[in-house]
Nucleic acid binder design. Structure first.
Lengths: 197, 197
DNA sequence: TCGTGACGCGAGCGATCACTCGCGTTCAAG
DNA sequence: CTTGAACGCGAGTGATCGCTCGCGTCACGA
């Protein structure tokens, strides 16, 4: 941010810009995400954009940050709530939370996950994964069936990446052969089978 | 393609354009992938590009197509060779083939998988996945430990997506905690544990 | 050898882009 | 009320973009 908005009207303007950025992204796609278009959609002059955002990418980053932060929040919350539980129910609940978070706004998800150059998401998604992975690591280290073959950290890496991709692709591709319940069943089987292999 | 090159020199020019496109993509990134730059890198005039390519995206598509087709070819070949075998060795060999294929040109992989709008890759990657998934489906349907809980098609979907993401992220992120052998071990454990869960 | 179509060229067009700057307006502190 | 800073504006700048077009060159069948 070039400078911090101090008055209420400027804070509202920044909000309008970010919201408009999200809308332009969803409705017109990444290629049409131009500063002039975002400014028009926000009902703001192009010059006003640059009062608080250093460049076009900064606007995009805020939009992406907000999306992934929201997803991370939901998953981490669900995971944190059940960190004491053990067994398949906990896996299922967490997977459910992830799928639900991704399902919440599939249009934004599609744009963010399929149309954007992934490099832009990389840091944010890495943060989401790291956060979840650490929770899973401590969970695995504490679970009863200890003396696991892979270290908790490695096992967490495997589980998180596998589940993440399954959830992402299920929401985006909606494979008709796999119902939502079936997806969760397979996730539980995948994780359970792996950890007790 | 706007029209097919008929003489030898024009076929060579198309080749130079595609090769130059790959180089521009690798060295300057997606944002700098402009027709003028590709033409300059190929030692060709901008006008000549449009004799055989309808637009900029077509050049990019050929570059991407070639990359994923190569990966798919290697994985499918390895999978086809061992379609009769059963047991963890087959899983490991196939995973090894995938990792090797991705390792072969990590620079192109990084650009293709991280910098490009994924929408461009989508069809090609979907083709790769479908091809592999079908092979895995027939493999699962024929394997001894039959009467599996999930249908072979669903199990193949799960296994392919999980392994694909693990391989991709391992090659791209090179997590120091996970050696190449350890990665393959975990993949075998993941698949084996899942299928016998 | 000649004619014809395939080929290759590159200046340049119109459009769009990210971004700036000078000016008028609004807010809030004193 | 005064005043200076924060704010918002939008025409405009220079650059770059994808792409075209008219012209000269070359390969090849007859």
């Amino acid at each position: 941010m070039r400078k911090a908005p101090q008055q209420a009207r400027s804070r509202e303007m920044v909000e309008r810009i970010v919201t408009a950025g999200r809308e332009v992204l969803v409705q017109h796609g990444y290629d049409a995400f131009s500063t002039n278009r975002v400014a028009t959609a926000a009902g703001v002059s192009p010059g006003s954009l640059y009062q608080y955002f250093p460049d076009k990418a900064a606007i995009l980053d805020v939009v992406i940050d907000r999306y992934w932060a929201e997803v991370a929040e939901q998953v981490a919350a669900s995971l944190g709530d059940r960190i004491g539980e053990f067994g398949p129910g906990m896996v299922r609940a967490t997977a459910d939370a992830l799928v639900s978070a991704l399902e919440a706004d599939p249009v934004v998800l599609r744009v963010v996950a399929e149309e954007l150059p992934i490099g832009r998401n990389r840091d944010r998604r890495a943060a989401l994964e790291r956060r979840v992975r650490e929770l899973v690591t401590t969970y695995l280290a504490a679970r009863p069936g200890s003396s696991q073959r892979p270290s908790p950290a490695v096992a967490a890496w495997v589980v998180v990446l596998a589940i993440e991709n399954l959830a992402l692709r299920w929401v985006l591709d909606q494979p008709e052969a796999v119902s939502r319940d079936a997806l969760l069943d397979e996730m539980v089987a995948l994780v359970g089978g792996y950890l007790s292999a």
